[in-house]
Design a protein around this nucleic acid. Structure first.
Lengths: 102, 102
DNA sequence: GGCCATTGCGCAATAC
DNA sequence: TGTATTGCGCAATGGC
């Protein structure tokens, strides 16, 4: 069995309704705000992501350049090639150790 | 001037209300679903981000190791140190070019 | 027991 | 003219 709480036209009823209406508005505003924040977060993360991807690309490139230099040098040593300081001829290295790309 | 559309108790009115109620439900379900998707997207992006950060850390480390090797070698050349193949003495390089940490 | 918060639901206005 | 979206109020329920 229920207690109708209060008559529909009672002062107390109206006050309760009024307060609840406010609470509802407040709650829904928060909810909406949260949704927007989440969307915003997605955008931020996407940007951050692109930034990181770019950095990785850059680092990978640098790394592959250095590795190639190393390989070339190693081959020179193996072939006992010692270009004197100042030498500039592009060493005809017949190497072909595939450029690591991972 | 407005056309009251239909009497509150007309059949047509009820049908319109009914259909609108359905539309409302549908719309709100979509909206809720979208919110959940967005939240999910945030989680995915966060994971992706961590993955990328880790990769950057790794690449950076590799890069700094290679760079250090290069610098050491460059100094050996400058000091005219040519450890013959098989030589093992750790060259007493007085170098100190700070390890690039960008 | 009381109070605010959250949620499902229907109504009406209005955007599309 | 019909559906979609949105603000709003009501009532039930959750949670402290």
């Amino acid at each position: 069995m229920k207690k109708p709480h209060a008559e529909k036209d009672s002062d107390e009823y109206r006050q309760r309704r009024e307060r609840n209406n406010l609470a509802v508005k407040k709650s829904r505003m928060r909810s909406k705000q949260k949704a927007m924040d989440t969307q915003q977060r997605v955008n931020e993360l996407k940007e951050e992501n692109e930034r990181l991807e770019a950095k990785i690309k850059l680092l990978s490139k640098e790394l592959s350049v250095l590795k190639d230099l190393f390989l070339e040098h190693a081959h020179n040593l193996a072939d006992n090639v010692h270009p004197p300081a100042g030498g500039d001829g592009p060493s005809p290295a017949p190497n072909n150790t595939s450029t690591n790309g991972q």
